[in-house]
């Protein structure tokens, strides 16, 4: 299968390792990955902040980059951005009265999958250890991000994949279904409420004794990780794709750049 990678702006700019991991997983399964170079962002920051007019060129760009027959399906390592592509793009096109863009956006949305959705529903991955060689000998807890859970209805796809990673010690996160408080510009406009939500999420993560918290959305993980870092916690965050891509021969760097650069990978 020819799979187009939608890296998402945050992963492209801040977490390239997550996109590389996504490529590795798909190639390991024998698929060809393409990267439409015109891509930039899904535009949900603009839409969710009320700047619909400013969202239009962002959405139009995404549709132009992915509106080609050159791939079979598109994938993004993010539930939130995929939900935006599927649900918001046609709405944005409608709001500016562009019926042609709406139709193309709908077609692109129909071909776009969140990573775990693609792996489980389309590529038939049921055992990450056996099929992907995933190996990750760490204590991990998992935060199911809101948009994957409620807009895409990912259900237990992500956690099922995690459970089948060899060597993993997956700890249940109390109140897992509670929002981490990110919410895009909500984290700045309503910083106090957002921080209060984050504080509770961080406390729940700490209570599991996990070395790190994983999930399917880099934005939520940046939020959670940023809070843990500020509180001086040793717990970090790592995207699900990087855990799935981690193998015995090529393990994922667990603790981020700080410890990697000093060569101290925690075990």
């Amino acid at each position: 299968m020819r799979i187009a990678l939608f890296a998402t702006c945050i992963v492209d700019a801040m977490y390239p390792a997550t996109a590389k991991a996504t490529v590795r997983i798909l190639e390991r399964l024998g698929h060809e990955v393409v990267f439409p170079s015109g891509q930039a962002c899904c535009g949900q920051m603009h839409v969710n902040s009320g700047y619909l007019k400013e969202a239009v060129p962002v959405v139009a760009n995404h549709v132009a980059a992915f509106d080609t027959a050159d791939y079979d399906v598109a994938v993004a390592p993010s539930g939130s951005c995929v939900a935006s592509v599927k649900h918001q793009h046609p709405m944005v096109a409608r709001s500016c009265g562009d019926a042609a863009l709406e139709a193309r956006a709908t077609a692109v949305g129909a071909k776009t999958y969140e990573l775990s959705e693609l792996l489980v529903d389309v590529l038939g991955v049921t055992d990450a250890g056996a099929q992907l060689g995933s190996y990750f000998p760490h204590r991990v807890t998992y935060h199911p991000s809101c948009h994957g859970m409620r807009l895409l209805r990912l259900g237990d796809r992500q956690s099922r994949l995690l459970r089948t990673v060899q060597g993993i010690d997956l700890a249940d996160l109390p109140e897992a279904d509670q929002c981490c408080g990110f919410g895009g510009t909500f984290s700045m406009k309503n910083a106090d409420v957002s921080s209060a939500m984050l504080q509770d999420k961080a406390a729940n993560i700490e209570s599991t004794g996990a070395e790190l918290c994983t999930g399917g959305d880099a934005s939520c993980l940046m939020h959670i990780g940023g809070g843990l870092s500020r509180q001086g916690s040793s717990t970090t965050t790592l995207h699900l794709a990087e855990i799935l891509a981690s193998t015995m021969e090529e393990p994922a760097s667990v603790t981020g750049e700080v410890l990697v650069s000093t060569g101290k990978a925690r075990r």
Partner: peptide, 9 residues
């Protein structure tokens, strides 16, 4: 608002 309770890597 972000950095009041969060670092950025």
């Amino acid at each position: 608002g972000w950095t009041q309770s969060r670092d950025i890597p």
